[in-house]
Amino acid sequence: MQKLKRKNIKTSKGKTVKLSPPLTDKDIAGLKVGDTVLITGTIYCARDSAHKLFGDKPPFPAKGSVIYYASPTPTPPGAIIGSIGPTTSTRMDKYAPDLLKAGVKATIGKGRRSQSVIDAQKKYNAVYLAIPGGTAAALAKNVKKATVIAYPELGPEAVLELEVVNFPTIVTIDAKGNDLFEIGKEKYHEGT
């Protein structure tokens, strides 16, 4: 039954939605896997070392916030930021449920999430947004301002506050727990 249900979910491109953090429960409720979300406003970059340090108390207001698992290349002279694509979200699975409980509404990255993250998304009404890994030079164009707000000593792993415009993401696990990695693979799988 589960399989049949999944097959019925479209994997063609969904609708395009423009959102600005802080995100509300209403913003999240309208999102389905396959939708494109263009984010304009403030998002926060954090990855392994920063998560280990801040645990469930991020150095920014958690409520309605969006965390981007990323650490950019150094900013070249005259630029706003270096290349800034997503890192593998799976490594932050250990920390994500507590942060979703604290009010984080969306995480952005690449790669799978664990069942505990999916369950927490369902419980706290949050989404996982993915970006194609390795499109970092193009993504730098959507960043209008970047500020280190915590742990400058971590170098590339410091926490950044980014002002982004139409930052392109794909809803990959929605708040109902639908997982586009599973749905997409099943749809295009051939043979046994």
């Binding site: 994997t11 790669g111 799978r112 586009l180 997409g184 295009y188």
Partner: peptide
Amino acid sequence: GIGPMGLG
């Protein structure tokens, strides 16, 4: 069926 970025 994994596909580009794993989305099928």
